[in-house]
Amino acid sequence: KKVIATKVLGTVKWFNVRNGYGFINRNDTKEDVFVHQTAIKKNNPRKYLRSVGDGETVEFDVVEGEKGAEAANVTGPGGVPVQGSKYAADR
């Protein structure tokens, strides 16, 4: 997939743990970017499923997906693991 931007910061608008996807609002352009659970590179080690939490600040790359921009290599700011959704089960 073609990389559009790297190391972008954004805020998770919403993320559905059961369906495994959601949207991140970019801090720079204010665009909403699709995020799939497979794009989460550093999950919270205490969580079973990969997820990001609503309102969480994340860092990610933006790539060209089939339906427009989507997030890739999602981590917390500075490459730390994401916090994850409060609806995702703990280990």
Score class of each variant (00 low, 15 high):
79 G>D: 10
13 K>L: 07
1 K>D: 07
20 G>A: 07
5 A>E: 15
42 K>S: 13
10 G>Q: 01
55 G>I: 03
52 V>D: 02
44 N>W: 07
35 V>Y: 02
72 A>K: 14
88 A>P: 06
41 K>P: 03
58 V>S: 00
46 R>Q: 15
81 P>G: 09
42 K>N: 10
57 T>I: 14
61 D>S: 09
18 R>F: 07
32 D>E: 08
71 A>T: 03
16 N>S: 08
91 R>C: 14
49 L>E: 04
71 A>H: 00
1 K>N: 10
30 K>N: 15
55 G>D: 12
73 N>C: 08
80 V>H: 12
52 V>E: 02
62 V>D: 01
26 R>V: 07
9 L>T: 14
35 V>C: 13
71 A>L: 00
88 A>F: 06
50 R>L: 08
84 G>A: 05
23 F>W: 07
23 F>D: 01
39 A>F: 06
77 P>S: 06
29 T>L: 05
78 G>W: 10
76 G>M: 06
76 G>D: 04
59 E>A: 08
74 V>K: 00
7 K>H: 14
54 D>V: 11
44 N>Q: 09
26 R>M: 08
60 F>H: 01
26 R>F: 02
26 R>L: 06
79 G>I: 04
39 A>D: 06
69 A>N: 14
63 V>C: 12
3 V>R: 06
49 L>Q: 06
42 K>Y: 15
2 K>F: 07
60 F>D: 01
42 K>A: 14
29 T>P: 01
87 Y>I: 08
65 G>P: 00
85 S>P: 05
11 T>D: 05
24 I>D: 01
51 S>C: 09
8 V>H: 02
25 N>H: 10
71 A>N: 00
82 V>K: 04
68 G>C: 06
76 G>I: 07
14 W>H: 04
67 K>P: 05
64 E>M: 11
56 E>P: 02
87 Y>S: 08
43 N>G: 11
84 G>F: 06
52 V>S: 02
37 Q>N: 11
65 G>W: 05
40 I>E: 01
59 E>D: 02
65 G>A: 10
22 G>F: 01
77 P>R: 12
49 L>S: 05
63 V>N: 04
73 N>A: 09
81 P>N: 12
81 P>S: 14
90 D>W: 10
48 Y>H: 15
31 E>D: 12
40 I>A: 01
12 V>H: 00
2 K>T: 06
4 I>Y: 08
44 N>G: 12
75 T>N: 04
76 G>F: 11
14 W>L: 02
31 E>Q: 15
78 G>F: 10
55 G>M: 10
89 A>R: 13
17 V>N: 07
60 F>S: 01
29 T>S: 11
20 G>E: 04
11 T>G: 03
73 N>W: 05
31 E>K: 11
45 P>S: 13
64 E>K: 12
6 T>W: 12
83 Q>H: 10
69 A>L: 12
56 E>I: 04
15 F>S: 01
73 N>I: 02
57 T>Q: 15
84 G>R: 05
9 L>A: 14
58 V>C: 10
76 G>T: 05
21 Y>G: 02
28 D>E: 04
19 N>D: 09
58 V>L: 10
84 G>D: 05
26 R>T: 05
52 V>I: 15
47 K>S: 08
6 T>E: 08
89 A>K: 14
68 G>D: 03
33 V>D: 01
1 K>M: 06
84 G>W: 05
59 E>G: 02
4 I>G: 04
15 F>I: 01
5 A>G: 11
37 Q>G: 10
16 N>P: 00
29 T>Y: 03
59 E>V: 11
34 F>T: 02
62 V>A: 03
56 E>V: 05
45 P>G: 12
52 V>L: 12
22 G>R: 01
61 D>L: 02
84 G>I: 04
30 K>H: 15
68 G>K: 04
19 N>Q: 15
80 V>F: 13
40 I>G: 01
27 N>T: 14
54 D>W: 10
88 A>T: 08
65 G>I: 04
74 V>Q: 00
62 V>P: 00
46 R>C: 12
43 N>E: 09
12 V>C: 08
58 V>N: 00
35 V>T: 04
35 V>L: 13
61 D>H: 04
75 T>K: 07
89 A>H: 15
24 I>G: 01
3 V>P: 06
69 A>G: 10
21 Y>M: 04
40 I>K: 01
66 E>C: 13
30 K>W: 14
83 Q>L: 11
87 Y>F: 13
27 N>L: 13
52 V>K: 02
54 D>I: 11
42 K>Q: 10
75 T>F: 04
10 G>K: 01
22 G>L: 00
52 V>W: 06
5 A>V: 10
83 Q>K: 13
51 S>N: 05
46 R>M: 14
8 V>R: 06
7 K>L: 05
20 G>W: 02
9 L>R: 11
82 V>Q: 04
91 R>E: 09
39 A>Y: 05
26 R>N: 03
44 N>V: 05
3 V>G: 05
60 F>Q: 01
72 A>Y: 15
5 A>S: 15
4 I>H: 07
88 A>G: 14
43 N>T: 10
81 P>K: 06
50 R>Y: 07
7 K>M: 08
28 D>R: 01
64 E>T: 12
7 K>G: 11
67 K>W: 05
26 R>Y: 03
40 I>R: 01
30 K>S: 13
41 K>H: 12
69 A>P: 14
28 D>S: 02
59 E>H: 04
3 V>Y: 15
14 W>V: 03
67 K>N: 11
87 Y>P: 07
48 Y>F: 12
83 Q>N: 14
2 K>I: 12
32 D>Y: 03
9 L>N: 11
67 K>Q: 14
10 G>T: 00
24 I>C: 02
31 E>R: 11
77 P>M: 10
33 V>M: 03
21 Y>E: 03
55 G>H: 10
50 R>T: 10
41 K>I: 15
72 A>P: 00
89 A>T: 10
25 N>F: 10
19 N>T: 12
21 Y>V: 03
76 G>P: 04
38 T>G: 08
66 E>K: 15
83 Q>G: 12
19 N>L: 15
50 R>V: 07
73 N>D: 14
44 N>S: 10
31 E>Y: 05
75 T>R: 11
49 L>Y: 09
12 V>M: 03
13 K>I: 11
14 W>I: 02
27 N>P: 05
6 T>L: 15
55 G>T: 06
83 Q>T: 12
72 A>I: 14
15 F>W: 04
24 I>V: 11
54 D>G: 15
37 Q>D: 04
89 A>M: 11
6 T>S: 13
37 Q>E: 14
61 D>C: 07
88 A>D: 10
53 G>N: 14
80 V>K: 12
11 T>E: 11
66 E>G: 11
69 A>E: 15
46 R>Y: 15
81 P>C: 10
13 K>P: 00
72 A>W: 13
74 V>R: 00
81 P>T: 11
80 V>D: 14
1 K>F: 07
65 G>L: 04
24 I>S: 00
88 A>C: 08
31 E>F: 05
41 K>R: 10
65 G>Q: 06
5 A>Q: 12
48 Y>W: 15
83 Q>M: 10
89 A>N: 15
60 F>R: 00
22 G>I: 00
47 K>I: 05
66 E>Y: 13
18 R>C: 09
44 N>C: 10
39 A>L: 02
4 I>D: 05
63 V>Y: 15
17 V>F: 09
18 R>I: 15
91 R>S: 15
25 N>S: 14
72 A>V: 14
20 G>R: 15
31 E>T: 13
65 G>V: 09
16 N>F: 01
17 V>S: 08
87 Y>H: 13
43 N>L: 09
85 S>A: 08
30 K>F: 15
44 N>D: 08
74 V>D: 01
69 A>S: 13
26 R>E: 02
90 D>V: 12
47 K>Q: 09
85 S>L: 06
82 V>T: 09
39 A>S: 10
28 D>T: 02
62 V>N: 01
